[in-house]
C-alpha cells in the first residue's frame, strides 16, 4: 500500500465514521464534530486526488578548483556564487532598476578587476558619491557588507570567480588567470558543500 492509498483509506474511514455518527448519534456536539470530520476528510481526499509531488532538495554540488580547465567554467561557478552563497543578488541586479543597490549591468567593462576586488573586500574604502538610484527611493537600510568576512565569507577563489562572472556578463574578456586560483587547502577551501 502506498502512502497515498493509506491516506486515502484513512480519509474515507473518517468520512464513513462521521456519516455513521450523523446516522446514529443524537448528541448535537458530537454531530457537529462529525460534520467537521466529514468536511476535513473530504478535503483530504480531494487533495489526494490532485497530482502528488514532493519538492526535493537539489543534488549537492561540489566545486573543485583543480578541475577547472576553462575561464568559461570559472565564470559559470561565479554565476552560482553571485546568485547563491555570495548573496549578491539579494540587493544587486543585472540590467534592471528593481534592485535596492547599484545595478551591475556592464560593471565588468566599466571597472577594473582590482577595483571590483576592493569593492568586495573593502566596501567603504571608495564610495561613488554620484550614484543615483533610478526611480523611487526605497527604504531598505543596508550597506554593502564585507564579502570576505562573516556572515557571507567568500574565500579568495570564490571572489575571483564572481569577478570572472561579472566580466563575462559584461561581454568582456575574463582577466582572471586560472593559475591565480589557490590550490584547495586540506580543509577544502575551494568549495563548500552548501554552496
Amino acid at each position: 500500500m502506498t502512502e497515498v492509498q493509506l491516506l486515502q483509506t484513512i480519509g474515507m474511514s473518517v468520512v464513513g465514521l462521521g456519516g455513521a455518527i450523523l446516522l446514529f448519534v443524537k448528541a448535537r456536539f458530537v454531530r457537529v464534530m462529525a460534520f467537521v470530520a466529514i468536511v476535513l476528510g473530504a478535503f483530504s481526499l480531494v487533495a489526494l486526488s490532485v497530482p502528488q509531488m514532493a519538492s526535493m532538495p537539489p543534488a549537492v554540488e561540489k566545486i573543485d578548483v583543480a578541475s577547472i580547465k576553462e575561464k568559461k567554467e570559472l565564470a559559470a561557478i561565479g554565476q552560482k556564487i553571485f546568485f547563491g552563497k555570495g548573496q549578491c543578488a539579494l540587493c544587486h541586479t543585472i540590467g534592471s532598476s528593481e534592485g535596492r543597490c547599484p545595478d551591475l549591468k556592464g560593471v565588468g567593462a566599466k571597472l577594473t578587476r582590482e577595483f571590483i576586488y576592493e569593492s568586495l573586500t573593502q566596501p567603504q574604502a571608495y564610495v561613488y558619491k554620484d550614484y543615483e538610484h533610478v526611480g523611487q527611493a526605497k527604504f531598505f537600510p543596508a550597506k554593502m557588507p564585507y564579502i570576505n568576512k562573516k556572515p557571507i565569507g567568500l574565500n579568495n577563489n570564490e571572489i575571483l570567480a564572481v569577478i570572472a562572472f561579472l566580466q563575462s556578463m559584461s561581454g568582456e574578456e575574463v582577466t582572471i588567470n586560472l593559475s591565480e586560483l589557490a590550490a584547495p587547502g586540506p580543509a577544502g577551501s575551494g568549495g563548500r558543500k552548501d554552496l
Binding site: F83, T93, S96, S170
Partner: peptide, 11 residues
C-alpha cells in the same frame, strides 16, 4: 528555475 538564472537580463 535555479537561482543562478533568475536575475539575468539580456546583455
Amino acid at each position: 528555475p535555479p537561482g543562478e538564472f533568475v536575475g539575468l537580463s539580456n546583455p
